[in-house]
């Protein structure tokens, strides 16, 4: 991830640090990562995409455990990574932390946590963003 340098990273900070997505002002659909226009409303949505902070709660759709990783992640193997469906609808890819690897399951309730993602061996830059951990309190909603 060294290509593009620092600007490439800080450009995405609001989204990666705080889970800020976009909501279409025309149909109400919510997108994360943010989109410039709504694929369903297209021209009607231009200029009407509003920032929206996501709750950070969701559920595991599918997952894997990475054993062979790119060099920026080599120190972390083996690590679980999942597609998480957020309460508001969007799905994102993120690491699952703070639990045993064998406890990671499809359907598991998880929530956002702010963590160090990777370390660039060449520049020494450390990149932060979201990971997900098992939900602390029991959830009553689906």
């Amino acid at each position: 991830m060294t290509i593009g340098g620092v600007a490439r990273f800080w450009r995405e900070i609001p989204q990666r640090y705080n889970l800020i997505g976009k909501q279409c002002g025309s149909c109400g659909r919510i997108y994360f990562p943010p989109r410039e226009s709504c694929p369903y409303c297209r021209r009607k949505s231009i200029g009407k995409m509003r920032d929206i902070k996501l709750s950070g709660k969701g559920e595991i759709v599918t997952y894997t455990v990475i054993h062979v990783a790119p060099h920026n992640f080599e120190g972390q193997v083996p690590y679980p990574i999942a597609i998480v469906q957020l309460e508001e609808g969007p799905r994102i890819t993120a690491q699952i932390v703070d639990c045993k690897i064998e406890d990671v399951k499809i359907g598991m309730k998880v929530e956002y946590t702010f963590r160090r993602i990777q370390e660039d061996g060449y520049t020494g830059a450390i990149y932060y963003g979201y990971k997900f951990k098992p939900c602390q309190q029991k959830q009553n909603h689906q």
């Binding site: 990666r16 599918t62 997952y63 062979v68 790119p70 990574i81």
Partner: peptide, 25 residues
Amino acid sequence: DQEWEAFFGATFPGIYAMIATKHMH
């Protein structure tokens, strides 16, 4: 997707592995 998959540690085999997990499930 470099910004939203690879950045978070997903590898190319890892993405296909997630398809396999779901297919098995």
